[in-house]
Amino acid sequence: MTALNLVATRDGLAHVDGADAVLLDLPHGDVAELLAEGEGFAPARAAKELRRVPLADVQGDLLAPLARTRAIWGVGLNYHSKAELTGRPVPEEPILFLRALSAVSAPGAEIELPQDRSGQVDYEAEVAFVVGRRMSCVRPERVWEHIAAVTAANDMTARDVMVATGTPSLAKSFPGFGALGASVLELAGVPDPGDIAVRATVNGVVHQDSTTAELIFPVPDLISRISRFAVLEPGDVVLTGTPAGTGQDRKVFLGAGDEVEIAVAGVLPLRTRYRAAPGRS
Rank of each mutant, 00 (worst) to 15 (best):
E49F: 11
E39M: 15
L34E: 04
A46F: 01
A36R: 14
R51L: 13
L63V: 01
L55P: 07
A64D: 00
V53A: 14
A36C: 09
L62T: 00
D61W: 10
V53T: 15
L34A: 04
G40M: 13
A36L: 02
L62V: 00
L55M: 13
A71F: 02
A44F: 00
T69M: 03
L50T: 11
A64R: 02
I72V: 13
V58C: 04
E33T: 09
L35P: 09
A46W: 06
R45G: 01
V31Q: 05
A47V: 03
E37I: 08
A47N: 04
A47P: 06
Q59F: 12
E39A: 15
R45C: 04
L34S: 03
P54G: 13
V58F: 07
A46I: 04
K48A: 15
V53Y: 14
E37H: 11
W73T: 02
D30W: 00
V31D: 01
W73S: 06
A64Q: 01
L66E: 04
A46S: 14
F41I: 03
T69H: 04
R52N: 11
L63R: 13
E33R: 12
D57W: 12
V58L: 07
A67I: 03
G40S: 13
L66R: 09
E49C: 08
V53P: 11
W73A: 08
R68P: 04
Q59A: 14
P54I: 08
A47Q: 08
D57V: 09
R70A: 06
E33I: 00
A44G: 03
A32Q: 09
A64L: 01
R52K: 15
F41R: 01
R70G: 05
W73P: 03
P43H: 00
G60H: 01
R51F: 09
L34Y: 01
A47K: 09
A64H: 00
I72D: 01
G40Q: 06
L55D: 11
D57H: 13
W73D: 05
A56Y: 10
L62C: 01
G60S: 02
G40L: 06
A47S: 08
L66H: 01
D57E: 15
G38S: 09
R52D: 12
P43Y: 05
G60N: 04
E33Q: 11
L50R: 13
A46C: 09
